[in-house]
C-alpha cells in the first residue's frame, strides 16, 4: 500500500511533466481554466485538512492566499535584478527563482497561520469562523493601504530607477531619470501548478491515513476523549491550521505568477466563502469529493458568464439543496447504522 502510493505519486509527476510539454498547443482559454482548477484544488484540499478532517471551521483561507501571493510577487519584482544576476534568465534559473518565491510565500503564510492559529484555535465553531474571517479582512485592508505593493490599485510590477528608487507606480519627480519596469514574471505553468496539486494530495492522503494522522479525525469527533487518550489537541489543531495556511500561500504564489496582477479585492470575503463552499459541497473530510467540487465550481462560472452577477445566489442555492438532500456532501461518507 505504501509503496503503491509512492509509485502513484512519482508516476503522476512524470505524467504532469509530459503533459506540460504539450501545454503550448492547448487553447489559451482552456489553459487558464485548467490552471485555475489546479489552484482551486490546492486551496480546497488544504482547507479540507482544517475544516473537514480536523473540524475547525476556518473562514480565512483567502487571507493566507493573499499573504503568499503578495509576498511572492513583491519578491520576484523588487528583487528581479538580483534573481536575474544570480540565477540567470534561463529555464533553470527561473525555476530556482520560482522555487524560492514559492517557499517564501508558503512559509510566510504558514508563519502568519501560526500567529493567528495559536490564540484563535482556543475558540470553537462560530467563534473561530468569525475570528478567521476577521483576520482575512484585516490582511486585505492592510494590503489595500500598503503603497509598496500598489495599495488598492493592485500590483503588476515595479519601476526601478537608476538611483535605486523602487516604486509600483511611475514617480513623477523622477520622470526624466531612466527606469526599468519589472513586471510580475509569468512563472506559473501547468507543471508547477499540478506539481503542487500532486504534492498536496499526497501530503494530506498520507497524513490522514497514518496512525498519527488519525489524531486529526479524533480531534474533530470528540476533543475531550481525544485529550484523555493522550492527544495534544492544541498541537494537532495548530499543525493542521499551519499546513493548511502554507498550501494556501502556495496557491496564492501560483495565482499571482499566473495572473501577473493582484488586487486586494481578489482576496475578499467571497473568495474565502468560495473555498468553503467547495469543501462543504464535496463533503467535509472527503478528498475525492472536495477535488471534484473544486473542479466543478471552477468550471461552473465559465458556463454562467452571462449571469455572472448571480453566481453567489447560485452557490447559496446549491448549498441549500445540498443541506436538504445530501448533508454529508457529494461524496462525503455517511455513518451507517447497523440495524439491530
Amino acid at each position: 500500500m505504501q509503496v503503491k502510493s509512492k509509485l502513484l505519486f512519482l508516476s503522476s509527476l512524470i505524467l504532469i511533466f509530459v503533459i506540460n510539454l504539450f501545454a503550448g498547443s492547448i487553447d489559451p482559454y482552456f489553459y487558464t481554466v485548467i490552471i485555475y482548477i489546479g489552484i482551486n484544488i490546492i486551496l480546497a484540499t488544504s482547507l479540507n485538512l482544517i475544516n473537514g478532517y480536523t473540524g475547525q471551521f476556518s473562514l480565512g483561507h483567502a487571507g493566507f492566499m493573499a499573504i503568499g501571493g503578495y509576498l511572492s510577487i513583491a519578491l520576484s519584482t523588487y528583487f528581479a535584478p538580483f534573481f536575474q544576476n544570480t540565477f540567470g534568465t534561463g529555464v533553470f534559473g527561473e525555476a530556482i527563482t520560482f522555487i524560492i518565491v514559492l517557499l517564501a510565500g508558503g512559509t510566510a503564510a504558514a508563519l502568519v497561520g501560526l500567529l493567528v492559529g495559536v490564540p484563535s484555535l482556543r475558540l470553537k465553531g462560530d467563534y473561530l469562523a468569525i475570528t478567521t474571517l476577521g483576520f482575512a479582512e484585516i490582511i486585505r485592508v492592510v494590503i489595500q493601504n500598503m503603497d509598496v505593493i500598489g495599495a488598492s490599485q493592485g500590483f503588476r510590477g515595479v519601476y526601478i530607477y537608476n538611483n535605486g528608487v523602487k516604486a509600483p507606480q511611475m514617480v513623477q519627480d523622477l520622470g526624466e531619470m531612466s527606469n526599468i519596469f519589472y513586471a510580475v514574471p509569468k512563472f506559473t505553468n501547468f507543471f508547477w501548478t499540478f506539481l503542487f496539486v500532486a504534492i498536496i494530495i499526497y501530503y494530506v492522503h498520507n497524513l490522514i491515513n497514518s496512525t498519527y494522522g488519525r489524531g486529526f479525525l479524533s480531534v474533530k469527533d470528540d476533543e475531550i476523549a481525544a485529550e484523555s487518550m493522550g492527544i495534544n489537541t492544541t498541537k494537532f489543531k495548530v499543525s493542521a491550521f499551519v499546513s493548511g495556511a502554507f498550501f494556501a500561500g502556495i496557491a496564492g504564489v501560483l495565482y499571482g505568477h499566473f495572473n501577473l496582477y493582484l488586487n486586494p479585492e481578489d482576496f475578499n470575503f467571497l473568495k474565502s466563502v468560495e473555498i468553503v463552499v467547495m469543501v462543504i459541497l464535496g463533503g467535509m473530510g472527503s478528498m475525492i469529493g472536495v477535488i471534484i467540487a473544486a473542479v466543478l465550481l471552477t468550471i461552473l462560472p465559465e458556463f454562467l458568464r452571462s449571469v455572472s452577477e448571480y453566481r453567489m445566489i447560485i452557490y447559496a442555492l446549491l448549498l441549500i439543496i445540498m443541506m436538504l438532500t445530501r448533508p454529508q456532501g457529494l461524496f462525503g461518507f455517511k455513518i451507517k447504522r447497523k440495524k439491530l
Partner: peptide, 27 residues
Amino acid sequence: LFKSLSVKDNVRVSFIKNIKSKYFSSI
C-alpha cells in the same frame, strides 16, 4: 467514542502518544 472512526481506528488513536513517526515522517 470517535463516532466517525472505525473500531480499529478508535483504538489506533491511543497509540499516537507513543509513536515515533510523527507529522512529517508519516507523510
